[in-house]
Nucleic acid binder design. Sequence first.
RNA 1: GUCUCCGUAGCUCAAUUGGAUAGAGCAACUGCCUUCUAAGCAGUAGGUUACGUGUUCAACUCACGUCGGAGACGCCA
Length: 546
Amino acid sequence: MLKFNFEQRLKNTVNSFAKTKGLEEEISFMAEIPPKNINADLALNAAMVMAKKIKTNPRNVAVELIEIIKKEFSDIVQSAEIAGAGFINIHFTEDYLNKELNKILDKKENYAKQENINKDKIMVEFVSANPTGPLHIGHGRGAAIGDSLARILKHLGYNVVKEYYLNDVGNQMNVLGESTKTRYRQLKGEDIPFLDDGYKGEYIKDIAQALINEGKNFDDIDFKKESHTRILETIKKDLEQFKVSFDSWFSESKIAAEKDDAGKTQVDKVCEFLKEKDFAFEQEGALWLKSTLYGDDKDRVLRRTDGRYTYLASDVAYHKNKYEREFAQVINLWGADHHGYVPRIMAAIQMLGQKKEALKVILYQLVSLMRNGQPVAMSTRSGEFITLKEVIDEVGSDACRFSFLLRAPDSPLEFDLELAKKQTTENPVFYVQYVNARCQSILREYKDDTSSADLKLLSSKEERDLIKKLISFEDILLICDKTKSPHHLTTYLMETADIYHRFYEKCRVLGVDKELEKARIQLLKAVSIIITVGLSLLGVSAPEKM
RNA sequence: GUCUCCGUAGCUCAAUUGGAUAGAGCAACUGCCUUCUAAGCAGUAGGUUACGUGUUCAACUCACGUCGGAGACGCCA
């Protein structure tokens, strides 16, 4: 449903019309921008939906509805006619378009903020990469999607918190510490073998070398802590370079290591709770979660026979903690390789008394990285991988983020390094940024006052197309919210750029009739606002000169 | 074997979540700079939306099946 600001009015009108036809229940119809080949600003399918229910010809219904709409929406609707199988095609009045255009100019960077939006707290948890190595290209996709989604939700007016969950306890941290320690001793000249399951990346050697350079006594070094701290620093630096920021860094040690007065961690307590509620049971010395109660394939282990908790146990405790912090909705971004994990965590939150809807897991397909036509392995354990930083250094943060946001999360992403290195027209980010550069170069030249501009002069097809596109910005953001995917915004910006560049060719701004010039300057300002805000929601800059 | 996602132009992807004649970019070809940035614009060409059946006024979209690709299926994280 298109969210033009008369949406509710339109619904009311259609529904009260439906009542006169004996339809009591609300009918769900669509108001949409028709395909390009259709000459109309808005298309309604209401007549077709209703006709089906009252078993009559849609065109008869449409004729009646059109008369009502024309009468009640004379401020918005210039004309309306039947088309196709029973669509009602509407043309907007100039007044309506210009009013909306003025709204953009008034509200500027706050345009499309929603007045009456739910103020409940929303958490977007993303990246959450283990601090055992630098971020790789796959983390980059999650970072771009999560950060941009959060920016869009914030812009719409939601109360959003971006959180990074730090897995800083458990066996992997021991392995990390041992890896660094072994590299340290090797660098000191000891002839000892490296660990079979150790982290083999060069960055471990770098940390070991740094520790040697700092000249501390071997016995005084806490290898685990030093490795973890230093890796976390590089992760934070990489994210900063990628323009990704977090409101909150949540450490797993808080729930898995910190103990209360009774000597219990939050993991202990959530397991006890689940056991009391009969959602968990002991069997063969292990503690199992009855996740099958909520549709999982099999029950899952929470505590191993040897008494150690599984990753799931702390994740359940972590989610309990999220809801205790009063987040009404939690959005998790996970790599698609974690999809098998979704049913058990969904089961867990329902056992904790939450509704399914309180958790939304967005799975993004992993990035397949190509180098010289060959796929590159990306495991942090194999030691051979491409870091996010390498790619950002090569292609730039803007191009990198834009590329990640070009596609739906569900769609696999092929990131060709050789192609990404080309900073040419092949990269669509320049196409969009170029719009703002072109706007600004004209605006720099123009010095007069535009306060009395008459927007009615913007009457050519190119100008009208551009205005219509600009005022659908709000609708696009709402679609991004609804689908929890920022890629619609990316597509929108490319389409807007296309329409703008056509306008630019066809309609000269400077040096035409004074009044027309004034009006077009206003239009340029609006374009610049939408492009700048739109790009900023993607975390991409909008340079004024290129 | 079970589950998840994907399959759309030569390539990479869209398609406002069920709407009208499926659209962009790249690659190919033809034009357009003494005028606000040619990182641009106009045009040509490119399609049985993997395949089949079904659901309905309407299917790339939903259901079932087949084929193909990626991934997940641990008392790993």
